[in-house]
Write a protein that binds this DNA or RNA. Structure first.
Lengths: 176, 176
DNA sequence: GCGTTTGGTCAGCATGATTGACATATCCCT
DNA sequence: AGGGATATGTCAATCATGCTGACCAAACGC
C-alpha cells in the first residue's frame, strides 16, 4: 500500500499540485494521530505510576479529579461526565467511599441524591496526582509559549463533541 | 477543601498579586486536564464505534496505524512504540494475522525478525478508521486555524517524553 | 397514591493490559 | 564449531475497567 493514497480515484482530473496537497494533508493528519497518542500517554504516565502504588487506576483518578473540580456533584452528573455506566462507576466509587477518599451527603432539596465530595484524604491524594500532572503540563506550556497554549486549547476543544464543550465551560465557571 | 489552594504555605510573604497568579495558574492546569480528557475521547470515539462492529478494540487500531505507518516494522520496534508487553501484543496481533489483516515476512538480513505489513484487507480497514478520524481532526483544525494547529503541535510534543519525540520524528521521515 | 427518577447492587461477560516461565530459531563472537 | 545473546512466540494465571440485564429501595411530584 505504499503507493496508494487517499481520494486519488475521486479526483481523476485534479489540477497540478492537488495531488501533492493531498499527500501533505495526509501527513498532517497522521502526525496529529501520533501526537495525540504519544502526548496523551505522556500526560497520564506520572499519575498512573503514583496510582499503581495505591492499587488504583485511571478510573479512580478521574473520579478524584471531577469530584474535586465540582464538590457536591451528583452521581448522575458524574456519570454523564465520565460517560460510563452506573455499574462501572459503582465498582470504583464504592471502595473509594469505604476507604475514606470520598464522602456522600444527601441532597437538601432532593434527598434521593448523594452529593459527592472529597475528604481530606481524598483531596490530599488528588493534589499529589495534580502536582505530578501539573509539572508535565507546565513544562510543555513553558517550552511552547503562550500563543501555542492558546492554539492547543482551540484544537482540543474542536476535537470534542458539543456536549463535552459545554461541560468544560460549566467546569470552568463553577457549578451553574 | 474549597479554600485550600496550592503552595500557599510555601509563600507566606508573597507579594501582592502572587496569590492571584497561583489561582490563575491552577485554573489553567485544571483546564488542560479537562481538555485532554474530553479531547482525547472525542478523537477516539468514531474509530471505536467502527471497530466495535468488527469485534476489535483500540489496540487493534493502534497496530493497524503503526504498521501502516511503517510497513516492514519488526515486532520489537512495534512493542517499543506501543510500550506494552510481547504477550499483550501477541493476543491482538496473532488473530489479525490469522484473519488476514497483517502479514509477516522473515527479515532478509536477520531471519529471526518477522517484518509486519498490512494486507489489502488491513489497509482498507485502516483507511476507514483513518477517514473517520481525519474528519474530526480536519474539523478541529479548520475551526482553530493554522496558527492554532502549530501551537497544538508544540504543546503535544512537550507532553511526551524524549523517546516518544524521537519516535515521532522517525515516523515523519520514513524509516531511518 | 402512583408513576418516575435517583441511586445501589447482583451476576456474568469481554477486552486489553499485566507477570513469570519456557521454547525455538537465528545471530554473532570467539 | 561452540555458546551466549537476541527476536519472537506461547502457556497459564491475574487484574482493571468497561459492558448488559435485572431488580430493589427511597424519595419526588403530580
Amino acid at each position: 500500500m505504499l503507493t496508494k493514497r487517499p481520494d486519488m480515484a475521486a479526483m481523476p482530473e485534479a489540477p497540478r499540485g492537488a495531488r501533492d496537497l493531498l499527500y501533505l494533508r495526509e501527513a498532517e493528519i497522521r502526525l496529529a494521530q501520533d501526537l495525540l497518542f504519544f502526548g496523551y500517554r505522556g500526560f497520564t504516565q506520572r499519575p498512573d505510576r503514583l496510582l499503581e502504588e495505591l492499587d488504583m487506576g485511571r478510573a479512580h483518578h478521574r473520579v478524584l479529579h471531577f469530584v474535586g473540580r465540582r464538590p457536591g456533584i451528583t452521581v448522575g452528573d458524574l456519570l454523564a461526565i465520565l460517560d460510563i455506566t452506573k455499574q462501572s462507576l459503582g465498582r470504583v466509587l464504592q471502595p473509594m467511599i469505604a476507604e475514606g477518599y470520598v464522602t456522600q451527603a444527601a441532597g437538601r432539596s432532593d434527598k434521593r441524591q448523594r452529593l459527592l465530595s472529597l475528604t481530606e484524604k481524598g483531596a490530599a491524594l488528588e493534589r499529589r496526582l495534580y502536582d505530578a500532572q501539573r509539572d508535565v503540563i507546565m513544562q510543555a506550556y513553558r517550552e511552547a509559549g503562550p500563543q501555542a497554549v492558546d492554539g492547543f486549547r482551540r484544537v482540543m476543544r474542536g476535537l470534542m463533541g458539543e456536549a463535552a464543550r459545554e461541560e468544560i465551560d460549566r467546569l470552568e465557571k463553577g457549578t451553574p
